[in-house]
């Protein structure tokens, strides 16, 4: 009798476990990745849930562009994510990793643009930066009179007399952020390559030299999101932080932006292409999951639709710079035809 009951309990438990494993068919879209794309993706998810009664609201996680793509490439199946947000294009090695794990249908979707701004506390000095200033502030070694010397600068006005007399402290995104790559590409390398000493170097050496950072604690790599950078600024008056334009727009009472090469970062200037530090934002859809996870294709199409991500849309309101009409048409075509990225 007792034994019988025990067997029953054991059997029920086993059945339940099996049921859980079989329950693999998931009906909620899972998104993860870039913290820059996160606000946009979350808004799109919420609007999607509100507009499509037949689908559940997608769930959006963070973890940075790199972290998101790593999760994305783990494989195919209900316990892997369906969409990875990224603030930079997928790297060839990441794509290779995806293919290796059986994720062959990686569909790239561009959602719009975002600017990267340098911002300081509202009570700190006004900055008018050029890429070479930032390079000189950050580099381990700087060129001086034809030679490379250890970075001697401790205050901004030593780099250029037009900059405020303020200590150099720079809070930049950590290497898990896609923003970091754009920052290095458009600011540090751009600034570094203006020096004749650098131009004389071998191409292969150049990147290593330019991206080497000083290690005396003046450059702070922020692994978390922009609120962490903001907290850093609140603790240190002199610090300058690297933010997304949309984050700055929500906190204009606390921080002010620096001009880069004389251009104020505004949505108009970024659309016009005069502001040098802007980048496209992406998400990647796992083609294998389309048709398996309900609503995945609809979500991708809704995300980039004019009403959601165009001018006057909720995403533009949140700070996204919309795609041009022809770009949008192209992106929608990619989603509909499920054109996957090819290995290089």
């Amino acid at each position: 009798m007792k034994l019988n009951q025990l067997t029953k309990v054991a059997l029920t438990a086993a059945a339940l476990t099996l049921a859980f494993s079989a329950q693999a068919a998931r009906d909620t879209i899972q998104v993860a990745g870039s913290s820059t794309v996160l606000p946009f993706s979350s808004i799109a998810a919420e609007e999607f849930g509100n507009n499509f009664a037949q689908f559940r609201t997608p769930v959006v996680g963070s973890g940075g562009s790199g972290g998101g793509l790593r999760q994305f490439c783990q494989g195919v199946g209900a316990n892997t994510i369906d969409v990875a947000n990224s603030s930079r294009p997928i790297r060839p090695n990441e794509l290779a990793n995806c293919h290796q794990n059986g994720v062959n249908q990686v569909i790239e979707v561009k959602i719009g643009y975002d600017g990267i701004v340098f911002a300081s506390r509202i009570d700190a000095g006004d900055f008018h930066l050029k890429p070479e200033h930032v390079f000189l502030a950050q580099a381990a070694q700087v060129p001086q009179n034809g030679r490379m010397v250890a970075n001697p600068y401790t205050r901004w006005n030593q780099i250029d007399s037009s900059l405020p007399n303020q200590e150099i402290i720079l809070a930049i995104p950590g290497s898990n952020h896609g923003t970091r790559e754009v920052y290095e590409e458009n600011v540090i390398l751009a600034g570094c390559n203006t020096f004749t000493e650098v131009q004389a170097m071998e191409r292969s050496e150049r990147n290593n030299f330019c991206l080497a950072m000083r290690t005396d604690g003046r450059i702070i790599e922020i692994a978390g999101d922009y609120t962490e950078t903001l907290a850093r600024l609140q603790a240190q008056r002199d610090a300058i932080g690297v933010f997304g334009l949309s984050f700055y727009e929500s906190n204009r009472d606390r921080i002010k932006v620096a001009t880069v090469s004389g251009v104020v970062p505004t949505i108009d200037n970024i659309i016009a292409g005069t502001y040098p530090v802007s980048r496209p934002l992406f998400f990647y859809v796992k083609g294998e999951h389309i048709g398996v996870i309900p609503g995945l294709q609809e979500f991708a199409e809704f995300f980039v639709s004019e009403g959601n991500a165009g001018f006057g849309s909720p995403l533009e309101e949140a700070g996204l710079i919309p795609l041009a009409d022809n770009e949008r048409a192209e992106v929608v075509q990619t989603i509909r035809s499920r054109t996957a990225l090819k290995a290089q």
């Binding site: 899972q30 769930v59 963070s62």
Partner: peptide
Amino acid sequence: KSFVASVPATPFEQ
């Protein structure tokens, strides 16, 4: 730590 915009009805929902 994902953003979830719905109230879960069962422990299996996000």
